[in-house]
Design a protein around this nucleic acid. Structure first.
Lengths: 334, 334
DNA sequence: ACTACTACTGAAAACGTTTCCAGTCAATAT
DNA sequence: ATATTGACTGGAAACGTTTTCAGTAGTAGT
């Protein structure tokens, strides 16, 4: 069943059918009705390849995410997916491994899938201008805030929280509760990831509050996985260092750490207070409930797509949206 | 940059270039080298639309999932995604809402995306043969086991656990620990979902162990969300019924319930033992650690794709794979 | 020297759309 | 009555591939 068949059955030309299907203005009411009747009668669906071939574009919006197993991202992606669909586009999701080059992946996708736009989730922060120049479609970054100012602000949009400030706030909460020996649990190699920015917020807070940065209280985990945080924390605890609070740069890290703390006889929050950033669903069901600075994940997804659609339609320019985190006071904080 | 340009630059015909790119045998070594040199020099990527148009097929494998926010599914999808990629295909992920018709979605996708195959995650169990006939490509169901025998076994593949038996086993563990008043936390409307099958396993176990089924101990949650389980359990607990164990049909349900139990002064496992099915990552970091029958999620994803690829390549027929669950003894069980 | 075969090649048709262009027809303006 | 406009229409080219088909050149067999 092709457009030709429809044309024949409706007694009009192929061009007319095409016009009807593309909502062109120059088509008579009667022709339109005839065509639509046949189309729905035979449940005709236009051939996407043929359409894309001649239009040299699709209705695809690419979403690139590094490590989809992280629930923080899936919560956002779920929202992005339904928003994209609602806007009449198609989401093309590409997950990449820890060592893959996301810019290269993106550039390939852009051509291969004829993307209208590209959304990045959880990218690194150390792109150069030249790298981003490879991307020739509207480009929106979620959870990425150009902290180091590498990028031309006009070249992309972003939707994120102020990671540095969120970390600062988290440490401040601990400080106000009287904690002074605050360990920090960070993840990822220090390559410009969100983890690094949050760590800098931690350092800034310590300095502001007159606390000496203690290298021994830095607990580096070389991934974003709960299991690795658990294991890393366990090993670190064996050193028997004195501390009274943990700031985890993500809920995942905190969840792993809490189990390790518990197994090492530390009660939370009596012996050690714990605070984190993210606000994933599971962390609310921990015991004790994790205190964390929640990111508005649904809103982030929604905003990202809204930005994207605005730019695709030429209605808006690239913008940078900073959303607010909100403290969820759990039981891991006195 | 089209195939014509490559042909011109390499001094061969368009046909030859096409043959090189498609690994046809009938092409000379010298021609092949010339073409490949130009291709890589100009970083040429063939136009997918044009290719799909003439071949009337793509390299897309569709994945349809109901509710992607459930971490149980995301863990499987992550695996499916990387396996599909590794096999040289492309994953096209479609999430659908609770009320969407997955068969209709699938059929549309099949045509629209020219799918080579379709993988279902978390489908209902009450399909009819006629419904499934709409799907004309290799069809693999993950976490669906044709419990009620509606479907022609030759018409699709499946990769799943024996849900009825897993539930039976869970109840048996509780029974062996001496529990007799076993509440069950189930989710979803009773429409043939996995929840229903597990519930039937619960009923069967009770019967086998000579325990009278008590309607009052059935706690229905009308979703698969943690939050709803928490709320539902909270309300149910207000009735003050006597019980000494909870069998939750999924980790999500258990996680919600555990928080409610805790807030109502019930200690786990002293007052109430809890067991579930799934084995999602977060449930291992609960306090107490949830005891649950773990599904081999990575293996399920891997098997599903393996099946799919085998069928696409015409090497294998539809098969039904039953994987084993494995008890993770946590602290929620004495 | 002829045939038969093999290995390779290129021309051209086809895939199903969109869109440009030229054209028809009726209505309106002159 | 004729020219001008406007609304609508259909023909045909174009998009970038794959694949069929016919063909050439070289080699081996007789």
């Amino acid at each position: 069943m092709t457009i030709k068949d429809i044309a024949r059955l409706a007694g009009v030309s192929v061009s007319t059918v095409s016009r009807v299907l593309n909502d062109h203005p120059d088509v008579s009411k009667s022709a339109k009705e005839k065509v639509l009747a046949i189309v729905s009668e035979y449940n005709y669906i236009p051939n996407t390849s043929a359409r894309e071939l001649v239009k040299t574009s699709s209705d695809n919006i690419g979403v690139v995410v590094r490590g989809m197993s992280n629930p923080f991202y899936t919560q956002i992606i779920t929202e992005i997916g339904s928003m994209i669909e609602k806007a009449g586009y198609t989401m093309v999701l590409q997950q990449i491994g820890i060592s893959d080059d996301e810019i290269h992946t993106a550039a390939t996708m852009e051509r291969d899938k004829k993307l209208l736009g590209l959304i990045f989730l959880g990218g690194q922060l150390n792109y150069t201008k030249e790298q981003v120049c490879c991307i020739n479609v509207p480009f929106v970054c979620c959870t990425f805030n150009n902290q180091y100012g590498n990028l031309d602000e006009e070249a992309y949009s972003s939707v994120c929280i102020d990671d540095n400030q969120a970390a600062y706030d988290a440490v401040q909460y601990l400080y106000k509760e009287g904690h002074r020996k605050i360990a920090v649990l960070l993840s990822g190699p220090e390559d410009g990831s969100v983890s690094q920015v949050r760590f800098e917020g931690y350092v800034r807070a310590l300095r502001d509050f007159g606390i000496q940065l203690d290298e021994k209280l830095i607990i580096p985990i070389h991934s974003y996985n709960i299991a690795d945080a658990y294991e890393g924390m366990n090993i670190w605890l064996k050193q028997g260092l004195s501390f009274d609070a943990v700031f985890a740069i993500s809920d995942n890290m905190a969840m792993g750490a809490m189990k390790a703390l518990r197994e090492n006889g530390k009660s939370i929050p009596q012996d050690v207070a714990v605070i984190a950033i993210d606000g994933i669903e599971a962390s609310e069901y921990m015991n004790p409930v994790l205190s964390t600075l929640c990111q508005p994940m649904a809103e982030m997804g929604k905003e990202a797509v809204k930005q994207m659609v605005g730019i695709i339609k030429g209605k808006t320019k690239h913008r940078h949206i900073l959303l607010q985190t909100k403290l969820r006071t759990g039981e891991s904080l006195r």
